[in-house]
Simulated assay, not measured.
Amino acid sequence: MSKQLTHLNPQGEAHMVDVGGKAVTQRQAIARSEIVMQPETLAMIVEGKHHKGDVFAVARIAGIQAAKKCSDLIPLCHPLMLTKISVDIRADETNNCVVIEALCKLDGKTGVEMEALTAASIAALTIYDMCKAVDKGMVIRNTQLLQKLGGKSGDWTHDKQD
């Protein structure tokens, strides 16, 4: 089966996909991002010693807000009525990084992969923003879709999850 880009019309022009005739189904996506930093920066966050406050709480809220605003940020994304957004953030002290996983759900006609990816990305960017004064060398990496459930194309899980 040949895969085709859905956001291009027959003339090769970008357009928003018409999902009007599609069935409403339950859909879910989980995305992940990591931000690597100096051990001292991670310790400062974990110990609650950052002068700007609770870094994880702010990043979590930023990720949730980003998922809700995805269609304002990414051209051709449909505005969605998300029924659940969660952004889980944990310190991985072994690898000097913060791991972010975002989950988005809805009952709708189109998937929520971009919303989950946006939530994970913006949460990582928020951590960078809050900590850049002490660690400009942080690296955001491994932003990826881990799983999508539902829809016409069916379920999908990333082959290699850490």
Rank of each mutant, 00 (worst) to 15 (best):
A120P: 01
V134C: 06
G154F: 00
A133M: 12
M37I: 11
N9Y: 02
G111P: 00
K148C: 01
L106V: 12
N9E: 13
F56S: 06
L8M: 02
V17M: 12
L73S: 08
H158Y: 12
G48W: 06
V17D: 06
M37H: 01
M44G: 05
D88T: 10
A31E: 04
P39N: 05
K148S: 07
A123Q: 01
A120V: 02
V112I: 08
H7T: 10
V46N: 10
D159L: 09
A14I: 12
A31P: 06
K49W: 02
T126K: 08
A31V: 06
S2R: 14
M1D: 14
T6C: 07
C97W: 11
V139K: 10
P10L: 09
A67F: 05
K136R: 15
H50Q: 14
I64S: 08
K160P: 07
T6N: 04
L146E: 05
A66C: 03
K152Q: 00
Q28S: 06
E34L: 09
K68R: 07
L82Y: 10
A91L: 04
Q144L: 11
R141A: 11
C131E: 05
W156H: 08
K3T: 13
G150A: 13
E47L: 15
I89L: 04
H158L: 15
R90A: 12
E47N: 13
E34T: 14
D159Q: 13
G150L: 08
A116D: 11
L146M: 08
T143C: 10
V134H: 08
K148Q: 06
P75R: 10
P39V: 06
G20I: 11
L149K: 13
M130E: 04
S2F: 09
L149I: 15
A59I: 01
H15G: 05
E40S: 11
V55G: 00
L5S: 01
D54F: 12
A57I: 11
S121K: 01
V55M: 05
D162R: 07
V139Q: 09
N9M: 04
A23P: 07
S86G: 14
M16P: 02
T83I: 12
A116Q: 05
G53H: 07
K105S: 04
L149R: 11
A43T: 15
V55R: 03
V46R: 11
E13A: 00
L117P: 00
L125C: 10
M44Y: 07
V112A: 01
A66P: 05
K52C: 10
P10D: 07
K3M: 13
K84C: 09
A14S: 13
A102S: 09
P39W: 15
K49R: 15
E34D: 13
T126M: 04
D18P: 08
V24G: 00
T6F: 10
A120W: 08
Q144Y: 09
M114G: 04
T118M: 13
L149N: 09
I30F: 07
Q28G: 05
V98S: 03
V87Q: 05
N9K: 08
C77G: 01
A14R: 14
V17K: 03
Q147L: 14
